[in-house]
């Protein structure tokens, strides 16, 4: 079991969360050429090491989190809320 420190709910089992995927993807402009969209949607760096990824706290606060995790050891380096505006709100509540 991986334990994820949700900034809002505290440390929880990963089975409460849904894995989103690669958080480093940057989507191109809407009118960018198709080849750029193909790369963003279908092609992945697939890092063997520390990767940025998203997790959704589905059975908790339902926030999307950005997690830095090793894909070899599953050790988590950092967790933060994906959207800065929401982070402000959560901080004021905490």
């Amino acid at each position: 079991m991986i334990r994820i420190k949700c900034p809002y709910c505290g440390e929880r089992d990963h089975s409460e969360f849904t894995y989103g995927g690669d958080a480093s993807i940057k989507y191109p402009e809407l009118d960018a050429p198709e080849s750029e969209w193909t790369k963003a949607i279908f092609f992945r760096e697939n890092i063997r090491g520390i990767q940025k990824e998203t997790w959704h706290h589905t059975n908790g606060c339902r926030l999307w989190l950005e997690v830095e995790r090793s894909t070899i050891t599953h050790e988590i380096k950092s967790v933060k809320v994906c959207h800065p505006q929401i982070e402000k709100i959560t901080k004021s509540k905490l």
Binding site: I2, D13, Y19
Partner: peptide
Amino acid sequence: DWYKSYAQRGNLP
């Protein structure tokens, strides 16, 4: 196991 990994061991859920 529902998340990306290169570890050749499975999780408990």
